[in-house]
Design a protein around this nucleic acid. Structure first.
Length: 830
DNA sequence: TATAACAGTATTTTT
DNA sequence: TACTGTTATA
């Protein structure tokens, strides 16, 4: 667009927007509340957006409208989202609405935005531009060392506990001094905690590193200590929009507060074109926050729900708009969601409604074991795919804890369901990836001692703990850095072998640093080049391949994967530096991995699910102790947060919702009985179609161990709801393990199949566990009879796929129709 | 110093 | 179960 915008000033916002196709079409198809949320202009706006009420739409349209009407330049907009994925999506949608790029617009997470600011101002902290960002594993490693050196563990202070407390303190913007004022002299544990905090902070400074919480907290500190820096951003960002406001913590809240202060007259440039208040200041930026207190699920890590409930107090002139119409789910699903969340007492009443009809009933399933439950999920996914024509990528399976994935994965693989695991042990948390990243970090930030220590003897080069301490001592005594001490290894008085190993590593790192010099004849090395050079010189990959250990091979593959990530980065960021690469990788979140083109079912935790939606949703493990999780019991408000988590899960579903549980659940090798979640009782019974109700599945080993065989009506303490379809008898009774486990675990394969028999206690024969089944030689065709470990005998109905992915569709005599991945399924030809 | 074997223990959610 | 840390041994 070629029109030069008129002078940009907040008073302008009172004038009607410029007429134009863009501006008016931006509210087309919106309901009255959404439209108001897009068009309202004022200093502060709170949009209370129920689940599925189109808040992303409202936010993107609002941003686009501000730009289209010439009320703001893109560069005056700061939009904060929860994940990088949400940020990318929002940017894309805004650009789509405007039909042009939106350069200069900041749409990012709190963390990314703060890193950007901090890098620019790094020297104020005495840090270099290349300061390191420690993720939680890094800071735990550091804390572990500190706790050990202080012998804090004798006071019962674990690294994990210290990490939790320090994180909370930082989220509350309480620094070491602030904490020392709080600590009572009498409590030795608190004293110790203070000392741990002090040393932790000191080590971070020494290493020129920030942890996750620092990114926010230090930015606030920077703004408060340097009003002229704050003023710079206050002048720049005239429209600030924050998504998921219910999940902001105090530090994030404070950051927004700082950014929405008026610019003091002394920081107003003489030549400003902005309209000034009578006292010569620039009025505060306009603030829009979007949130739903019913979806607040991060209180455990410091999110403060009162930030949203107090918004109108904090910003007295604020306008509030309620979005209650849901465009996502059927009314059946919404009724269940409303009923569940209605049990939280301290909430503002809100009732989601939908114009999209009742839809089908919620499907309930109570299996005998976690595997049984997983089998239900797998079968149902196939049914939805084959009969209802849903795409795999429109289905998702949620669970409370990552540990639950094991059973699910096993069965999904065996049943040939394509799936994608979102989150979990993330790529960047793998040891080998952390190793390699530590090399890069050590190059980018020579002060980073933690990174140096990590790579000192990885791969093994004979530099043990003794040598490490020697280097450290030397550095302390000489007042030099760890890295410098490595360069002077000859003065350490260690053996020649070790000395040379240390010198060798120091040289590799120094060479790497030099290769980044843009004045080199060949120009600065790209991240990919740097990484390959490092790996070649350290022989990191070679040593992994040498062992012949399949696990090491997998690790090597991960490292190769990292190399391609780096090369990809070089391609997409032609001017990207090593520091840019490290920043980007440090801030990737689980949900960011999601890409919709994979054609696979998504598996994720309930937390990761927030903000997403799927046609069909499976919420698994709806059991006491799991959902609500036992850990939440002690926390104040814990139960309510768990309920919100369940609510979030329910409201992700567009068309079909499945709730499932098992009466026996495996936890750390132990099998324990479980009870249906109290939350199930909160859903009106007529909304759920129990394929197999909790009462039915519990005939087995947990609750009624003393009852005679065949008894299925047991006192579960849970009202059964009647009318069950007798789902998958065959699967429900006997399957307790996957992939060759199950029949072996019970000495008598049939022992587990009968109700009422006590389970053989622990320590079963474990000899075949973990055996990789390979049926690749098995030739099968339509009409063949087979026997399956869990499902019994059946006839092959059809053969699908080819090679490694040969799938048999089998009509089992007793267990119904299943799809099985031939190579992995525990089957034999008859 | 490296490795293997063993014992103990922790297990919620994540930017 | 799986991972960590410790100890004994090469």
């Amino acid at each position: 667009m070629s029109v030069v915008p008129p002078r940009l000033d907040p008073a302008m916002t009172l004038l009607p927007p410029l007429p134009g196709p863009a501006a008016s079409s931006l509210v087309e198809g919106l309901n009255p509340q959404q439209r108001e949320a897009v068009e309202y202009r004022g200093p502060a706006l709170l949009i209370v957006a129920g689940a599925g009420s189109g808040k992303t739409r409202v936010l993107t349209h609002r941003i686009a409208s501000l730009i289209a009407t010439r009320e703001a330049w893109p560069s005056q907009i700061l939009a904060i989202t929860f994940t990088n994925k949400a940020a990318a999506e929002m940017r894309e949608r805004v650009e789509g609405l405007l039909g042009e790029g939106a350069e200069g617009m900041w749409i990012s997470t709190f963390h990314s935005a703060c890193v950007r600011i901090l890098r620019r101002e790094a020297e104020r902290f005495g840090y270099g531009q290349g300061f390191t960002i420690y993720d939680s594993a890094d800071s735990r490693a550091l804390l572990k060392r500190i706790v050990k050196s202080l012998e804090a563990d004798v006071l019962g202070l674990t690294p994990a506990a210290a990490q939790g407390t320090i994180s909370k303190l930082k989220n509350e913007l309480i620094d070491v001094d602030g904490f020392s004022r709080q600590v009572s002299g009498g409590d030795p544990k608190e004293q110790m905690l203070l000392e741990v905090y002090r040393q932790y902070d000191r080590e971070l400074r020494r290493a020129h590193a920030f942890d996750f919480d620092d990114l926010i907290g230090q930015t606030v500190w920077l703004f408060r200590a340097h009003p002229e820096i704050a003023a710079h951003y206050q002048r720049r960002f005239r429209h600030i929009l924050v998504d998921e406001y219910q999940d902001t913590n105090h530090a994030q809240y404070s950051l927004i507060r700082e950014l929405t202060r008026p610019v003091e007259p002394q920081h107003v440039p003489a030549d400003t074109r902005m309209q000034l208040a009578p006292d010569g200041s620039i009025p505060p930026a306009s603030l829009t926050v979007v949130g739903d207190s019913d979806q607040s699920i991060y209180a455990f890590r410091g999110a403060d729900i009162t930030n949203i409930t107090n918004f109108e107090r904090d910003y007295p002139s604020a306008n509030t708009i309620l979005l209650e119409q849901n465009y996502r789910s059927t009314n059946t699903i919404l009724k269940a969601a409303n009923a569940v969340i209605g049990n939280n007492f301290d909430r503002i009443a809100k009732n989601l409604w939908s114009a999209s009809g009742e839809g089908s009933l919620i499907v309930g399933f109570a299996g005998y074991s976690g595997h049984d439950e997983a089998q239900f999920v797998a079968d149902e996914i196939h049914r939805l795919h084959d009969e209802d024509g849903l795409m795999f990528s429109d289905m998702a399976v949620f669970y409370r804890t990552n540990a639950q994935t094991r059973a699910l994965e096993e069965i999904l693989i065996r049943s040939a369901v394509p799936y994608r695991l979102i989150g979990g042990t993330k790529f960047y948390e793998r040891a080998e990836i952390k190793d390699v990243m530590a090399y890069l970090m050590a190059v980018a930030n020579p002060a980073d001692e933690l990174a140096l220590r990590r790579i000192l003897n990885t791969p093994k080069r004979g530099i043990g703990p003794m040598s490490e301490t020697a280097i450290w001592d030397f550095a302390e005594r000489q007042g030099i850095t760890f890295r410098e001490a490595m360069r002077r290894a000859k003065e350490l008085g260690l053996g020649p072998k070790v000395t040379n190993a240390i010198l060798g590593l120091a040289e590799i790192l120094d060479d790497a640093s030099e290769s980044l010099d843009p004045d080199r004849p060949t120009g600065a090395a790209t991240v990919g080049e740097l990484l390959t050079a490092l790996l070649r010189k350290t022989k990191y990959l070679d040593k992994l391949y040498e062992t012949g250990n399949p696990q090491d091979e997998a690790r090597a593959e991960n490292v190769e994967e990292l190399i391609s990530v780096a090369k990809e980065f070089d391609k997409t960021h032609p001017d990207g530096t090593l520091v840019d690469f490290l920043t980007e990788t440090a801030l990737v979140a689980a949900a960011d991995e999601l890409d919709d083109e994979s054609g696979a079912v998504s598996l994720m935790t309930l937390h990761t699910a927030k903000g997403l939606e799927f046609d069909a949703v499976f919420v698994t493990g709806v059991e006491e102790e799991l959902l609500p999780h036992r850990m939440s019991a002690g926390e104040p408000g814990g139960l309510q947060e768990e309920r919100r988590l369940f609510y979030v899960g329910i409201t992700r579903a567009r068309k079909v919702l499945h709730l499932s549980l098992a009466s026996m659940r495996n936890t750390f090798g132990e099998t324990n009985p479980s009870m249906p979640s109290r939350f199930l009782d909160e859903i009106p019974a007529e909304l759920i179609d129990w394929r197999q109700a909790p009462g039915e599945a519990q005939g087995g080993l947990g609750f009624g161990r003393s009852l005679g065989g065949g008894s299925r009506e047991l006192d579960s303490g849970f009202g059964s709801s009647g009318g069950y379809g007798g789902y998958g008898r065959g699967s429900s009774a006997g399957s307790s393990g996957g992939q060759g486990f199950s029949s072996v675990r019970f000495k008598d394969p049939d022992a587990g199949r009968e109700f009422g028999k006590p389970k053989p206690k622990k320590k079963w024969v474990n000899d075949i566990t973990g055996q990789v089944r390979d049926n690749s030689g098995l030739q099968l065709e339509r009409g063949d009879r087979i026997r399956h470990v869990d499902f019994g005998e059946g006839t092959i109905r059809a053969m699908l796929g080819s090679e490694k992915k040969r799938i048999a569709e089998v009509d089992f005599d007793n267990a119904g129709r299943k799809k099985l991945l031939i190579n992995l399924a525990p089957i034999e030809k008859l």
